[in-house]
C-alpha cells in the first residue's frame, strides 16, 4: 500500500474510533440527564425517601453516599500514599517490594463483591460494627487502596530525579525532600488516584449493600446503616419501585461525580499553580 493511502486510512480509523467513543459517552449522559434531570427539584434533594422510595426525595442517600465515600478516602489515602512513598523512596527493589506490588495488583483485580463479603465478615460481624457507614467506608477503603497505591507510585516515579538531588544538596533530609520537593510535584498524579477511588466508591453497589446496608433513614452517626445513591438507584430500578426516581438518582449521581472531579481539579491546580 502506498504511504499516503495508509496515512489517509489511519487518519479515518483513528478519528472514527475517537468520535465513536465520544458519541457513546454523550448518548449515555444525555439519555440519563434528559430522563433524570426533570425529577430533580428541591423536594428531591431535601426529603428522605417515603413509601420505599416511591415518594419523597433521596436526601438520606446523598448523605449516605458522601459519608461512605469520605470515610473510604480519608482512610485509604494516607495508607495508599504512604505505601507508595515507601515503595519508591524508602526501599530498594527487593523481594518485599515485589510482594507488596504484586499484592496490590492482585487486590485491584478482585471483584468488588468479594470485598463486600470480606467487609461483611470482618467489619460487620467480627468487629461488630454492624451494617454501618463505618463498615461500608472501611470496606470501600480496602477496595480502592490498590488503585491509590499504583497511581501514586506512578506519580512519584515521574517526579524528575534532579529535584531530589537539588533538595538533598541544599541540606534537606530525606523526609524534607519528600514533603517539600517530591510530594508537590507528584500531587496531581496522586489526586488522579484519589479521584478514581472516589469514582469507584460512589459507583459501588454490591459491596455497599453487604456492609452499609440499605436503610432509608437519615444516618445520624458513622454507626448508622445507610443507603448510597448507587444502591438506591439499583433497588429502585431492580424492584421496579419507581423508574422515575431511579433516573433522578442516576442523574444526580452523574452531576455529583462531575462536581467532585471538577472540585478536585481546581484544588490541585490552585496548589500547583504556584510552581508553574
Amino acid at each position: 500500500m502506498n504511504p499516503s493511502t495508509s496515512q489517509r486510512i489511519a487518519k479515518v480509523v483513528i478519528w472514527a474510533a475517537a468520535l465513536l467513543v465520544i458519541a457513546v459517552l454523550l448518548a449515555i449522559l444525555l439519555f440519563i440527564l434528559i430522563k433524570g434531570v426533570p425529577q430533580i427539584n428541591w423536594q428531591f434533594l431535601t426529603q428522605i425517601p417515603r413509601n420505599m422510595g416511591r415518594d419523597g426525595g433521596i436526601s438520606s442517600t446523598i448523605v449516605g453516599t458522601l459519608l461512605v465515600t469520605a470515610v473510604a478516602v480519608l482512610v485509604a489515602t494516607p495508607f495508599g500514599v504512604g505505601t507508595a512513598f515507601y515503595l519508591t523512596e524508602y526501599t530498594k527493589e527487593s523481594r518485599i517490594t515485589r510482594i507488596i506490588r504484586f499484592s496490590a495488583e492482585s487486590l485491584a483485580g478482585i471483584p468488588s463483591i468479594v470485598f463486600g463479603l470480606f467487609g461483611f465478615i470482618f467489619f460487620v460481624m467480627y468487629l461488630k460494627l454492624g451494617w454501618s457507614i463505618l463498615s461500608g467506608g472501611l470496606t470501600m477503603a480496602v477496595m480502592i487502596l490498590p488503585t491509590i497505591i499504583r497511581t501514586s507510585e506512578e506519580a512519584i516515579r515521574t517526579v524528575p530525579a534532579p529535584f531530589r538531588d537539588v533538595s538533598f544538596s541544599l541540606g534537606g533530609t530525606k523526609w524534607q525532600t519528600i514533603v517539600r520537593a517530591v510530594f508537590p510535584s507528584a500531587l496531581p498524579g496522586i489526586a488522579v488516584g484519589v479521584i478514581l477511588g472516589i469514582g469507584r466508591c460512589v459507583a459501588e453497589t454490591a459491596a455497599v449493600i453487604l456492609t452499609a446496608g440499605s436503610a432509608l433513614r437519615m444516618p445520624t452517626s458513622l454507626f448508622s446503616p445507610a443507603r448510597t445513591m448507587a444502591v438506591h438507584f439499583y433497588i429502585m430500578a431492580r424492584e421496579g419501585i419507581s423508574i422515575d426516581k431511579a433516573y433522578g438518582t442516576a442523574a444526580l449521581l452523574i452531576i455529583l461525580i462531575l462536581i467532585i472531579n471538577v472540585g478536585a481539579n481546581l484544588l490541585v491546580n490552585r496548589f500547583v499553580a504556584k510552581g508553574k
Partner: peptide, 14 residues
C-alpha cells in the same frame, strides 16, 4: 558545601 548542577533545575516553586 553547596552545589550547582549542570542542568538548571528550579524546583516547581516560585
Amino acid at each position: 558545601v553547596g552545589m550547582v548542577f549542570e542542568v538548571p533545575t528550579p524546583l516547581p516553586l516560585s
